[in-house]
């Protein structure tokens, strides 16, 4: 039997945080019913905890996919520690547990971002002139990977040549998002948060700091289109499955490395 375990951060304070994990799990159950016998959610701050989730799983082949954007403290330290993983492949008590990489660095992520943009712009009028895509990341000076994944996706989208400009901005590091959205030389600015879930930042601090009134905000010299976080897009469910499948492809080599 095969199980997919989706790991989310979760929250002690609001239900938004875990919602995408539950929604993606439900989509995987529907779309990939023949591939996974079980699809189980677990969290750092909610129940079931990462610490106990494997107790609930009946399958012997387990794929763990972190619903996190970047490689960092959680994916490298907290998740492996709490799940008792020794590396990309852990064999324990007759089970094989494969640990996938985070979502943001996956090669399929730019497609999800562009789908999010299409959903946002559908049926909306843009101004004549240039259109800039701005990817918004949380960013932190504590870990370069947090911004690195945003730059990586910007570069991958830039290579496709779909937008006149592709820029990045952050909440907690330079360049600050307000400067990027206000300063980019384009008549249309499409702003997409590269976050997993809706929350305090996406609902309150970001609209407030940027003076946004909703999905479309007309400013003197530009129109700003503000999208929902990438992580809530239904295509992320497919991305999670792709991440899980990828662990099979690299398993033989990695298993040799860790044993």
């Amino acid at each position: 039997m095969k199980a997919l375990v989706i790991v989310g951060h979760g929250s002690h304070l609001n239900e938004d945080s875990s919602l995408p994990v539950y929604e993606h799990a439900a989509l995987v159950r529907d779309r990939y019913a023949g591939e996974f016998d079980e699809v189980v959610e677990c969290f750092w701050k909610e129940e079931p905890s990462m610490r106990h989730v494997l107790d609930l799983v009946e399958s012997e082949d387990i794929y763990v996919v972190p619903a996190f954007i970047s490689e960092g403290y959680f994916t490298q330290q907290v998740i492996p520690r709490e799940l008792g993983l020794s590396g990309p492949v852990t064999r324990r008590d007759g089970r094989t547990i494969r640990y996938a990489g985070p979502l943001g660095t996956y090669e399929g992520m730019p497609d999800v971002i562009l789908e999010r943009v299409d959903d946002l712009l559908e049926g909306k009028e843009t101004r004549p002139g240039r259109t800039a895509l701005v990817l918004l990341g949380h960013g932190t000076d504590l870990n370069k990977n947090s911004s690195g994944v945003i730059y990586l996706n910007a570069e991958r989208i830039r290579e496709r040549g779909v937008y006149d400009l592709v820029e990045v901005g952050f909440l907690d590091q330079d360049p600050p998002i307000a400067e990027v959205v206000g300063g980019v030389e384009a008549e249309n600015v499409v702003l997409i948060p590269v976050f997993i879930a809706e929350g305090w930042h996406t609902r309150e601090t970001i609209p407030e700091d940027l003076g946004l009134t909703g999905e479309v905000t007309e400013m003197a010299d530009r129109t700003v289109f503000y999208g929902a976080p990438v992580g809530t897009h239904p295509s992320v469910a497919d991305l999670i499955v792709s991440r899980a499948r990828e662990t099979d492809e690299r398993e033989a080599e990695l298993a040799r490395d860790v044993s």
Binding site: E47, P48, S49, H52, V53, D55, L56
Partner: peptide, 14 residues
């Protein structure tokens, strides 16, 4: 049961 009381059934059994 695992949604109402996550992990409870397996811990109850053990």
């Amino acid at each position: 049961m695992n949604y109402l009381y996550p992990s409870a059934v397996v811990h109850w059994h053990l």
